[in-house]
Design a protein around this nucleic acid. Structure first.
Length: 210
DNA sequence: ACATTAAGTGATT
DNA sequence: AATCACTTAATGT
């Protein structure tokens, strides 16, 4: 079971021994839409390999209650932050929330380090995950610094959609606004503009991407 | 039918 | 672009 999932979603993990090890130590876990998978301050004991679903990763802003949206994760990916957290034994500085029903393979952290020296494809996987995430973060910074709200909204919608198998985003304007640190009214107005341009179709609690 | 929540609108800063 | 005040629309009970 686990072997087939690995083959399908993480084919780059190629060594037979590695696959066998993952098979014996990984746990298959399921989350429902809306579940908090990991929260701020908790110790990271597991590294997730995402099989199915989509996940929102946020960071709590310094003092107040606001959250900064970092990126979305989808299947075939892993949470790079969990690598650094478990390697340095630090508490999680991020929160991960399932946007859809999500299935993942949980790897106990002690193996993550061990496998780095043992299996080239694992090391490569970890490194390229970091690289991917680093690039995504640079893009986030770039967006916040330079892009207009309407461009940011487009980026938000399409990057969120790319983590799903449907083109329907289930969210209220209020939630989208919170993710983007913007006012609900501004989001509503921009969404309406996008609808008039034929890029989206709106319904209550839903944005359909066209 | 009524209350609640989501979304639309215009004015003000 | 944020905030406010208000309206209209959709949904839950």
């Amino acid at each position: 079971m686990i072997e087939t999932l690995l083959q399908k979603h993480f084919p780059q993990l190629s060594e037979p021994n590695l696959k066998a090890e993952i098979n014996s130590v990984a746990q298959l876990m399921n989350f429902q839409a809306g579940d908090i998978i990991m929260d701020y301050g908790s110790y990271v004991r597991l590294v997730p390999l995402i099989i199915k679903g989509s996940i929102k990763v946020t960071h709590e802003a310094d003092d107040n209650e606001r959250e900064l949206l970092l990126y979305f994760l989808n299947d075939g990916e892993t949470c790079s932050m969990s690598f650094s957290c478990c390697l340095t034994q630090k508490r999680s500085m991020i929160r991960t929330e399932a946007l859809e029903d999500t299935t993942l393979l949980a790897i106990p952290v002690q193996y993550v380090d061990q496998w780095m020296g043992q299996y080239p494809s694992w090391k490569n996987f970890v490194m390229s995950s970091y690289d991917q995430r680093m690039q995504a973060l640079v893009q986030v910074i770039d967006n916040i610094a330079f892009a207009n709200l309407d461009e940011r909204l487009m980026d938000y919608l399409w990057s969120r959609q790319s983590t799903q198998d449907t083109n329907v985003i289930k969210a209220t304007h209020k939630e989208i606004a919170a993710d983007m640190n913007a006012s609900r009214e501004a989001i509503s107005r921009l969404l309406k503009k996008l609808e008039q341009m034929g890029k989206v179709r709106l319904a209550r609690n839903e944005v359909h991407l066209l």
